[in-house]
Simulated assay, not measured.
Amino acid sequence: MRVRNKPWAPELIEAHPDLIVEKGQEFKGKWHERFAKKQPLFIEVGTGKGQFIINMAKKYPQYNFIGIEIQKTVIAIALKNALEEQLPNLQFLYADGAELTDYFEDHEVSKVFLNFSDPWPKTRHEKRRLTFKSFLKVYEQILIEHGVVEFKTDNQGLFEYSLSSLNNYGMHFDGVWLDLHHSEENDENVETEYEHKFSAKGQPIYKVRAHF
Score class of each variant (00 low, 15 high):
K28L: 06
A76V: 04
Y206S: 00
L90P: 01
N189V: 10
Y103I: 02
E105F: 07
Q25K: 14
E22M: 10
D18H: 10
A98F: 12
E105W: 05
F116A: 02
S162I: 04
V149E: 07
A9H: 11
K37Q: 15
I20A: 07
Y194R: 04
D179R: 00
G97I: 05
P61K: 00
F27K: 09
S134N: 12
N155D: 15
I66K: 00
K37Y: 14
E184G: 12
V208M: 07
Y103D: 01
Q156D: 09
G46E: 08
L166K: 12
Q71V: 06
V138Y: 01
T192F: 07
R129G: 03
G170Q: 10
E160C: 10
T153G: 07
K197G: 02
Q91M: 14
Q25W: 11
K207Q: 13
M171A: 15
E26T: 12
P61Y: 01
I20S: 09
P88M: 12
Q203R: 13
L90Y: 05
G48D: 08
F135Y: 13
E126C: 04
D174E: 15
P119F: 06
I66M: 02
Y139C: 00
V190C: 12
A95I: 07
E69Q: 01
E99L: 14
N89G: 02
P119I: 06
